[in-house]
Design a protein around this nucleic acid. Structure first.
Length: 276
DNA sequence: CATATGTCCTGAGAGC
DNA sequence: TGCTCTCAGGACATAT
């Protein structure tokens, strides 16, 4: 499930298309339910074809492709979406093809489950739909003071709060678990009960875990879905200390890693190590 | 306002 | 072997 490290890897992977122009936009024939495409294909084409790509940015878990018209194409992978330069894992789940005139002839959006979206926004629409009032600071840019100011008074469990994109952008279920393990904080601890020292450890762990995961080009889980822009698997799954390790022994204390459910999502942690 | 819950989607895997 | 059922968790709409 693409979170900050996977989406940042996608962003870096498609950087070589900066300077290329869009020559066509095509919806591949797909028997599955179509993904969200905004605006509809005709208007999308009208606004995209002939435009030069000026920059590739990341906003939380989204890839932004900026055009010389100031319009922005927003790729939102959600659970299984991929932004690719290389040929996709299969044709059946190919959702959008953008042809280019540069060294890389295509930019693709592929999505097995189809929960993702591709949208083209003006700067005004961008601010309305994805402005700072709807999305918190990036997890790699937020200061510990900002983190405490945004979450410190919450009555929610810290694991659940870390997933709130309005408070903090980029952390998802997998990395929340890894971050709290490294910080030694129990996932069910209420935010408002955490000390300054605990918030400091969470902030440090967040930076270390996310930066390291970017270095490894993200996590490709056992379903093999996540790939980088060249359709290659990531490597951080081998570094997971708690996620998807229920029943296995903790690397620090050898206690058994447990799985609980919080807000309808799995949480993995070590009862012995995460109690500080 | 803050927080909780239901929904979308497909394919893998379990159980029979 | 083939059917049915459950589960995975992004973001968002709706409910409390």
């Amino acid at each position: 499930m693409p979170e900050l490290p996977e989406v940042e890897t996608m962003r870096r992977g498609v950087l070589p298309i900066v300077g290329s122009c869009i020559t066509s936009v095509t919806l591949p024939r797909c028997k599955l339910k179509p993904i969200t495409l905004l605006p509809k294909i005709a208007a999308f084409r009208r606004r995209a074809v002939g435009r030069e790509i000026t920059a590739i940015d990341r906003l939380g878990k989204r890839v932004l492709v900026r055009l010389d018209s100031d319009d922005i194409i927003i790729f939102e992978p959600r659970m299984t979406g991929l932004v690719l330069l290389a040929d996709p894992p299969n044709q059946a789940h190919l959702r959008l093809q953008i042809a280019l005139d540069g060294e890389h002839p295509q930019l693709l959006f592929w999505d097995r489950r189809g929960l993702g979206s591709v949208r083209l926004f003006s700067p005004k629409q961008m601010n309305e739909k994805l402005g700072p009032h709807l999305l918190g600071p990036d997890a790699l840019a937020i200061t510990v003071e900002q983190l405490r100011a945004r979450l410190g008074k919450s009555g929610r469990a810290v694991k659940v709060a870390l997933l709130d994109q309005k408070a903090l952008a980029g952390v998802g279920n997998l990395y929340a678990a890894e971050i709290l393990f490294r910080a030694g904080v129990h996932p069910e601890a209420k935010c408002q009960r955490l000390s300054v020292a605990q918030w400091t450890r969470i902030h440090e762990a967040m930076n270390v875990v996310l930066q390291t995961a970017i270095k490894y080009e993200g996590s490709t889980l056992s379903d093999g879905t996540y790939r980088n822009a060249l359709n290659e698997a990531g490597g951080y799954q081998a570094e997971h200390l708690v996620y998807d390790r229920e029943g296995q022994s903790c690397v620090q204390c050898e206690a058994e890693i447990v799985r609980i459910v919080q807000a309808q999502r799995s949480t993995f942690f070590c009862r012995r190590c995460q109690n500080r």
